[in-house]
Write a protein that binds this DNA or RNA. Structure first.
Lengths: 333, 333
DNA sequence: AGTCAAAATGGTTGCGCTATCATTTTATCT
DNA sequence: AGATAAAATGATAGCGCAACCATTTTGACT
């Protein structure tokens, strides 16, 4: 197997110098059209592909941004990722992606690994990074965006919405509808879920009339199946009294809904169900499930844009961006 | 902002030579314990992070594998990705991921971009790469795995299963159950969906008794909502005769099932529904949906393992690996 | 034609690391 | 203790590219 072609090989074929080839690849408009086409032909002919490592080393620009999400299997982060990829494409960047499985320690290791790629920006999910991770990130000097939730003390930039407020609002929605024996079904119990739960408790505590709450949580990862199990659990705990459940996400809500059919409960007459994240299925099941929508795709896109504008050296502290959320009221409540 | 620390800085702090630091990072057991701990402390103290570009350039090993999937939003590829990431972690590799949106041309561009990272292996989805893409891949000399479907002429290695056979089998399943007016609902119509459709047609053509088929397809991307629309379409086309539908994936099948409720059709009495991919929801809806399961996570894992063993220079041609599939019969048929 | 500025092109150097080989230290044996 | 092998450490060079500055070519003007 003959070695991979390099710049010089292309230069030889095109009859120009190596640096000219380099320019054709990175600044085509700095080269005359004649040479440019000659070089481009040579590149295509011998199937030359630039060595990114050498390019990054020499230019001190990696063309890479690093992204860490807590889970690949959660559709929520998938939406964000799609936004990120769509934005990244415009800027001719590459993404290196890590999945930290909701673990700050794994995240710390990933941050170190991904920083070694000399990314030009870093997108993180959430706000619970370890101290050492924060040190590494700050030391790197690159722009950083923390996604999904709002932080009091962001590392750098921050874009998201208040899961606490959303929790309050959706709980109040149930209370306003007349439900008084509210259940909270929670899985995974990451920081965002905890904030939703805190909102749930706050709304109940602030409510002027007597009402009951039942909280059933597990650190297991969320799934549709688990939603059914948690519904069973909350019905057991409330001795069948529970008349509405706030599920910490739509997977649980769907599972709970499917379980009500097996339990012969009418939704929303016997029990109301609401979820979180507004997945497609929630709008299409019968009855459709009330949920909390947020602009995940746009959040991903905007995170990339923030990184790109931030690399312009203005180290002014930017305030967190609240993208908001929207309660989508449907038949299940 | 003081510059990012490099090997020499660590070496100075630890009182050793740069090359020793390098060894601690890549071959810790080649260094005495005394020096090793000293170096490790220095690394942690100054927050040193190795420059991957320089490392890759000097060592000619990038520690990266490239992956291209046709869609980030399709859960199917998500499962594969999870398998890939889980395997990659064991080998201390990084993934660079591209989403080609089911387009061979986009894929070609992505392949060129990702090859510039000097990946040590390449994972592709499907078998319809452009000629130039194949040339680039072959020239790169790295091991390549094509995933998901089986190919007659793989570029290098191949792991997947026969979507044609699966299409035949699931159609025969419907025929055996006594259904005679079969509909096929197809979205996206990528090569794998086309193969499933070909299987559907073959089974019908080979069936010894009279039967009808109605094929409704669209190049729109698949969604639950679309499943409902396609069900409407097939019922219109068959003038209400259609008594079973094979949906090219479970999203469509779920949408079709939800639509039957709105149309007051009983499943499976009035109409049978089967899907493809066996998503979690399919097992939990009422009635549960018959589907075709395949080991996606394992396929992803195995693809990485194949790459790793293949870099061991044995250029013997490996036969495609058939991971098989399984028809999961449920109440909907 | 001659002058000057601007555009186009090329030569040299160094980015930060590791492969390679050379040297020193330590362990193992007679 | 001396000889030898083995392990540990260090010095040097170069990976492939782009930044930087030098040189050449081109075009626009008097």
């Amino acid at each position: 197997m003959n070695k991979k072609p390099n710049l010089k090989d292309v230069a030889k074929v095109a009859g120009v110098s190596a640096i000219t080839v380099s320019r054709v690849l990175s600044n085509p408009d700095k080269v005359s059209e004649k040479l440019r086409t000659k070089v481009e032909q040579a590149v295509h002919e011998i199937g030359y592909i630039r060595n990114h490592a050498a390019s990054a080393l020499a230019s001190r620009r990696s063309g890479v941004i690093a992204v860490i999400i807590p889970s690949l299997s959660n559709i929520v982060f998938n939406d964000v990722l799609q936004g990120i990829y769509s934005a990244v494409k415009q800027h001719h960047l590459q993404v290196v992606l890590g999945d930290c499985h909701y673990s700050p320690l794994e995240e710390e290791k990933l941050i170190a690994t991904l920083l070694s790629q000399s990314p030009e920006g870093f997108i993180l999910t959430g706000t619970d990074q370890t101290d050492y991770a924060r040190k590494l990130l700050q030391q790197s000097g690159i722009p950083i965006v923390q996604l999904m939730e709002l932080s009091d003390c962001p590392i750098d930039m921050n874009i998201g919405f208040s899961h606490f407020n959303a929790g309050v609002d959706i709980t109040n929605h149930l209370l306003q509808k007349g439900y008084r024996k509210l259940g909270f079904l929670g899985a995974r119990m990451d920081t965002r879920t905890q904030q939703r739960l805190a909102g749930f408790k706050k709304a109940i505590a602030d409510f002027k009339q007597p009402c009951q709450s039942y909280v059933v949580t597990t650190t297991q990862s969320s799934s549709i199946r688990l939603g059914g199990q948690l519904l069973q659990a909350v019905m057991a705990e409330s001795q069948g009294q529970c008349d509405a459940v706030f599920c910490c996400n739509d997977d649980l809500a769907l599972g709970a809904l499917f379980e009500t059919k097996r339990m012969n409960l009418k939704v929303p007459a016997d029990i109301a169900i609401c979820g979180f994240n507004d997945l497609e299925a929630s709008a299409l099941v019968e009855p459709a499930i009330t949920s909390v929508a947020s602009p995940r795709f746009e959040m991903g896109q905007q995170a990339v844009e923030l990184l790109m504008t931030a690399s312009g050296e203005d180290k002014t502290h930017k305030p967190p961006i609240d993208v908001g959320y929207r309660i989508v009221e449907r038949a299940s409540t």
